[in-house]
Write a protein that binds this DNA or RNA. Structure first.
Lengths: 321, 321
DNA sequence: CGTGATTACGTTTATCGTAATTATA
DNA sequence: TATAATTACGATAAACGTAATCACG
């Protein structure tokens, strides 16, 4: 059995069972890839791919097992290559963080400031996107870690670790009638035009669910991509905004007021996301520790190991730590 | 990077940093192994082994990391080979159990009876030894699983899963004075000659600790290898025995009586032990499930995955399930 | 000098890419 | 007929084993 054979299996799967494009991705010839698969199938004693005449259709059942093991072995070859960098310079390298606007603007600055002081030789790079996009960046190895709220899409090859909770507030203009109410209800909010995040964010989804459950149709007039834009619209008197509490800055947002909405909307959980079966650099583990006291290297490392199925168990393990 | 290179690293380490014997074990030439290591070291960019002139002394720090990853990758190559058997016959094959006398004689019969009924085509083999020996059998791949009490030796490449607790009883002849006492004390026991397990068993160790803590020197007259021999000596009037409660069979041991000693000695935990990073056959997972309701395949599989360090976390995870 | 690792070199094997072939849609 | 996988085959490169070399006790 050769590592190159396993690499072929992965690439064919990645390219939608297309040997030709897999060969291109591997910078080699199509017949070579085809041969490798055949040799592996002969050695293992069963077909990995389902073929229909001269087309590869999909994976066989045992082929799925092969894929899973092959994935882990290729991850381990990467891990071997990274040992050198790790030992040469524990505190030098690049940390690429994929994150959402809210995190990048309101949560990470403090954390990054602290991290940068402790790791002056680590180059930081930020990539921005919605919760699904940032996970895709990590999966494609274009970012080391993702920090954001939950993505509706599931990523079996990524490990999600909860770091903290985000509560929501209503942001209104100074002197707004809602400020005079003692306890806000969803019905109160529905009396005003509402500005909230774009549909791709999980925050937006939680807000809409709360209204739906209460049987109230809110008047959502605008879906802005980020909290800053929401606040700008509120300042212009276009409505009220439902955003993460942390995005309200009393010293800067002088024309606005925030009303806690913790009793109206479920809190969102922020996750840090990494590739399964990777051995992150020490400084990456330190960065995650900056995000949450609970997420020590000794918690994160074992959580990254293992097969993709125990989603429930891994989350239980996280709760403990 | 080639799998054969990693195989060389493992074999050299296994053979006490001796390239010549590693080469023999790999059925190849010494220069070949030497070359493979050099190539790998060049590719990774750091030395794996510490050399003193023309001798290999040990592993470098990054070399230890390489060893760990190499171990997992070789385990995965084995796992790939086993996929075929698993899919060809989910319920056919061999299950080799390494276990202690107490487990083999008093605990496993019921479990094996049930398992054998459900898996008529699985060939069972039992190997007997003390807790350390049975772990060594699993480590050397001579047994699939070990069932026994804790070994004093630690095995970083094995995963230990607790299945159940063993309480202890005092076994005496009918009419023995101890039977007339309401609540037994350690001091009461010390009045009589004591027969217990041999020093290699963890049971023996727990018993001696209890006496030591109480500052009592028991009169241990004999250390027998197993509970049956202990009981035979008691029958002959040579003393009293401290053995696992389960080894007393009232319908068979008609000349003996058992007195519960749960308040005097700490209970022992029975563990099932498997190789780390192995993908056990389905019927092996079923057997483990027979040992303990808690140990479902969905609990065992993730516990086997991962690095060797998270002993505390793995045990926490087990508690949950 | 014996043991043990490294270097040198020739043989064998396997890997790779081009080209030809086959089989669909 | 265009697309996609398989088969055939020659060139290249890597792996292997033998033999020679070096280094130390």
């Amino acid at each position: 059995m050769k590592l190159q054979q396993l690499r072929c299996v992965l690439e064919i799967y990645r390219h939608g069972n297309h040997i030709t494009s897999a060969a291109e991705a591997l910078h080699t010839s199509q017949p070579g890839v085809s041969k490798h698969i055949h040799q592996l199938e002969v050695e293992l004693g069963f077909p990995i791919f389902i073929r229909k005449r001269n087309h590869v259709i999909g994976l066989t059942e045992p082929g799925k097992e092969v894929l899973e093991i092959a994935r882990r072995m290729m991850a381990d070859t990467e891990n071997l290559k990274h040992i050198r960098e790790e030992f040469l310079s524990r505190d030098m390298g690049t940390l690429t963080i994929a994150t959402t606007h809210t995190h990048a603007r309101y949560i990470l600055p403090n954390i990054i400031e602290r991290f940068a002081t402790e790791h002056p030789n680590v180059q930081l790079a930020l990539h921005q996107g919605n919760p699904t996009q940032i996970c895709e960046l990590v999966e494609a190895d274009e970012a080391d870690i993702a920090v954001g709220t939950e993505s509706p899409k599931s990523f079996p090859n990524l490990v999600k670790l909860p770091c903290f909770l985000l509560s929501r507030s209503i942001v209104v203009r100074v002197g707004h009638p809602l400020l005079r109410l003692k306890k806000l209800t969803l019905q109160d909010l529905a009396n005003y035009p509402i500005i909230t995040h774009d549909p791709a964010s999980s925050g937006r989804w939680k807000v809409m669910t709360a209204f739906e459950k209460a049987g109230i149709k809110p008047n959502v007039i605008s879906s802005a991509v980020d909290a800053d834009i929401c606040k700008t619209y509120v300042e212009r008197g276009l409505g009220i905004a439902i955003v993460a509490t942390i995005t309200f800055d009393p010293t800067h947002d002088i024309k606005l007021r925030a009303i806690d909405a913790g009793h109206l909307f479920e809190q969102s959980t922020s996750f840090v996301t990494l590739r399964r079966n990777s051995y992150p650099r020490t400084y990456m583990l330190n960065f995650i520790h900056c995000l949450s006291e609970r997420l020590t290297p000794n918690v994160v490392r074992p959580a990254l190991a293992g097969r993709s199925l125990p989603a429930d168990l891994v989350s239980k393990l996280q709760m403990l730590a």
